[in-house]
Design a protein around this nucleic acid. Sequence first.
DNA 1: TCACTGACTGTCA
DNA 2: ATGACAGCCAGTG
Length: 114
Amino acid sequence: MSGTFNAKVYEVVKDIPEGMVATYGQVAELAGAPRNARFVGFALHRNPEPGIIPCHRVVFRDGSLAPGFAFGGPDEQRRLLEKEGVTFIAPPNQRKNQGQDGFVVDLARCQWRR
DNA sequence: TCACTGACTGTCA
DNA sequence: ATGACAGCCAGTG
């Protein structure tokens, strides 16, 4: 692993407190690459440090989670976040393919703030 | 070594 | 209002 942006992403994600979530764009920005939002997910996709990197705390700009790529299932992910204290809201359909679960993280309340 | 792909986001039509 | 397209950078094959 060429310790680089991707490594920075892991550091940022690990720094997300429980009960809080961060968007890919936000992580990307904290990692020093506001345009690399895509790559943030890519980095987490490899997930070189399973158990150390709470990928489930990283959500879309809309508050929805990664479709189909959840570590154990979108339903499990929602339950886990909810258990950590993350608030979920119902009306998602802001975009087209996002918020398909019908429940998204209430970024207004639980988005991680540095 | 080179080329392609990719958990996204923002803007345009 | 919704739908579709393009852009960005770095890792993986």
